[in-house]
Amino acid sequence: MTTILVTGGTGTLGRLVAERLRADGHEVRVLSRHSRPYAVDLREGGTALDDAVAGVDAVVHCASTPRGGDEQAAAHLIAAARRPGVGHLVYISIVGVDRVPFGYYRTKLAVERLVEESGLGWTILRTTQFHDLPVTLFRTLARLPVLPLPKGVPDQPIEVAEVADRLAELAVGAPAGRVPEMGGPEVRTLDSLARSYLRATGKRRRVVRIPLWGATYRAFRAGGHLTPHAVGKGTFEEYLAHAEGRG
């Protein structure tokens, strides 16, 4: 039986990764700021982190936040994993982190480099964003009388459960370096996804497409965050039917 530590193991992705690994008979340790016995803030590190990695065969690093601190967290995790000689570190990243000059993407790319230079056996999987990200955006914007969206930006959302399955598979295998990306089954415009969201929720809003400016907008509009590896199966409409309780 393999012992695997999942950081961010109570989050949207990490929770599913932990479930998949347990279902396959592996011992799973869930690390998050409030999940005992491995309640650790990776940005601070410390002896509790050393205890969490002691004796594990692999680490799946899902913990991440756009609010900052990912590089520091990764550095602490890598240092802790080196001490007992953890054999495999799996990191989940985002398609386009090397092409889109968005702050959070730059941070994810920096963490990739830390993983690659860690001296540990490593695997990095990049995926497109999960279905819940545009839904969260639309839910927030739908509070307004109109639903404003950046003009001409495509998206390729993927089902998080499919990503969890792939990470669980990678975690029990040998370190594989940078593996092929995973993208959702469809490339859609944001306004197309928004209209599907409005139909699913029964909300009536006029979608307004707003041209923006800057390098980040140009990179998103050019599809820097998309991948030809459209291996995902679950569609956005299928996600909405489940999430919103509508068929």
Rank of each mutant, 00 (worst) to 15 (best):
G245H: 07
R206D: 08
G96E: 04
P228N: 08
A54D: 13
R204T: 13
E237S: 07
R36A: 15
G184P: 05
D155M: 10
D70C: 05
D165N: 11
I4P: 03
P148A: 08
R199S: 15
H76W: 09
E237T: 08
G46C: 06
P37F: 13
G85A: 10
D98H: 13
L77Q: 12
D24R: 14
V86F: 03
P101W: 08
V30N: 05
S118H: 05
R195N: 15
R206N: 04
I124Q: 01
P175M: 09
G103Q: 12
D51W: 02
G214D: 09
Y91E: 05
G214W: 08
L13S: 01
P134F: 12
V60W: 00
R209S: 15
E238H: 10
R15A: 15
R33M: 05
T123E: 11
H131R: 10
G85D: 12
L120M: 12
R178L: 06
V97E: 01
G245N: 06
A241Y: 05
V95P: 00
L240V: 10
L170E: 11
V97L: 05
T65A: 15
F236T: 04
L212E: 13
G85T: 03
K151G: 00
D41Y: 09
L109D: 03
G25H: 07
F138R: 04
V86T: 10
R143L: 14
G46D: 08
G245R: 05
H26Y: 06
E237D: 15
H88R: 02
K203V: 05
A110P: 01
G223H: 14
L212V: 11
E71H: 00
L190W: 01
S196L: 13
P148G: 04
R195A: 14
A219E: 14
P228S: 13
A142C: 07
G247N: 11
A80V: 14
A194I: 05
V179C: 05
G68I: 06
P37I: 13
A54P: 01
A73G: 04
A176G: 15
R29H: 07
R205Y: 14
Y38M: 13
G8W: 02
G152D: 13
Y217A: 14
E19V: 07
P134N: 10
Y104A: 02
L240N: 03
V146H: 05
T201R: 06
R22A: 10
L77P: 08
L21H: 07
R113M: 02
L13E: 01
H131I: 08
K108G: 01
R143H: 11
D98C: 10
R29T: 06
V135Y: 01
A215C: 02
A230L: 11
H242P: 00
R83H: 10
L31P: 12
R246G: 06
E19P: 02
H34M: 01
